[in-house]
């Protein structure tokens, strides 16, 4: 009898009935919201494509950066400098960059055309000038290829 009574008392103290309350709802909503937000953050490039990543146009002469500007801009950007062979002009417009004028007999750089993705480059040999596109944060990006033969 005495043992039975003790058991009954234990039952009474340690088994509270579960009742769904406002705090549970808040906690569950919090879990879902945070998980969703973090997933969105992590897979943002995957979901929204590369345009969301900020790219930068870098223009170097003899390895020194003489001009850099975000690739995506609402305005047309132009930059003119003087290389070994005279003036050379870079134009950035609608997410594309190009060497649009150069005082050199070859004109290879002008003919190369416009670039818009990481890994592409326009080279002006006589002026030792290189126009290329890099991710603004310096990280690597996935490209369709490792290197291009031309």
């Amino acid at each position: 009898m005495r043992i039975l009574r003790e058991k009954r008392e234990t039952k009474k103290i340690y088994t509270p009935t579960f009742r769904f309350c406002a705090a549970d709802a808040v906690a569950i909503a919090g879990v879902i919201l945070l998980a969703g937000l973090s997933a969105l953050y992590v897979y943002r490039t995957f979901l929204f494509g590369s345009p969301s990543q900020s790219l930068e146009v870098i223009f170097t002469i003899d390895g020194k950066t003489v001009y850099s500007v975000p690739l995506q801009s609402n305005e047309v950007q132009t930059f003119t400098t003087t290389g070994d062979l005279g003036s050379i002009t870079v134009t950035v417009r609608d997410g594309e960059a190009a060497i649009t004028a150069a005082d050199c007999p070859d004109q290879i750089c002008v003919r190369t055309g416009r670039i818009s993705t990481v890994g592409q480059a326009v080279v002006c040999l006589p002026n030792h000038a290189v126009l290329r596109i890099e991710p603004a944060d310096g990280s690597e990006t996935s490209s369709a290829y490792d290197i291009m033969a031309n």
Partner: peptide
């Protein structure tokens, strides 16, 4: 409960 819930949310993140 609230603390436990938010902690697991953080861990999941």
């Amino acid at each position: 409960r609230l603390i436990c819930g938010l902690t697991s949310a953080l861990l999941l993140t």
